[in-house]
Amino acid sequence: MGAPALRLRGVRKWFGSVSALEDVHFDAHAGEVHAIVGDNGAGKSTTIKIVAGVHRADEGEVLVNGGEPRHVRSAADAQEHGIAVVHQDLALVECLDIAHNMALGTLPRKFGFVLDRRRMEREAAKVLRDLKVRVGDVRTPVGLLSGGQRQVVAVARAVRMDKPIMLLDEPTAALGVQETAQVGEIIDELRASGKAVVLVSHDLDFVFSHADRVTVLRLGRTVGTRLVADVGREEVVGLITGAIAPDQVHDGEVA
């Protein structure tokens, strides 16, 4: 297997005196879905936000495509490094419509400075159509959407960015059965198109049916990474709860 699309090594993060991450490491590969699971507060979202450029790691390395350690100072930097994110809190602006939200950060322009609203709306509608999701007119303010619809918009936005690395933080938390299946399909397609997908989820069924590998975080540490094909639910649950002792691996190549 070649260089991982995304590699984290010994990542630590404090918020003031609170230690959110103690030692997080995992490798995510192109064409694979890499799940991250763990209890509430285990540090999953913090890990995602560090890779996404929202937070900065205090220690450790984040490497993209086997390159030099990245120095991301902002979410814009992360985008330039080929990373698209669906945040757990969705990061949508309620007073803007779906099309604006989907293009935020990369709004299309004409004549150099005029917002190209037509193109923006056309692109947004096309992405939603391609994903076969229904959230209504792209001019609907996100504030009017239900929680599930918002989640779909957030996923669609990340898909629209078409980056080689996709981070999805609980993309199905607010979704019904049908929408969850739909997002599952989207994830399968992303994998098929060669992207490295990092999927945070509490839904172990969802993880087992869509992920290739799973990394378990506990109290801000990576306690183990397994191939989904080789592991049973009990073992994953054991790692999550601490009933099973963490792996004693530090040099990197786990699983």
Partner: peptide
């Protein structure tokens, strides 16, 4: 649009890479 996004949801503006 960026100004509206900033005022509408500052955290979202940051997360979307607005300066």
């Amino acid at each position: 649009v960026n100004v509206r996004a900033l005022g509408g949801n500052r955290q979202a503006a940051v997360a979307n890479g607005l300066r």
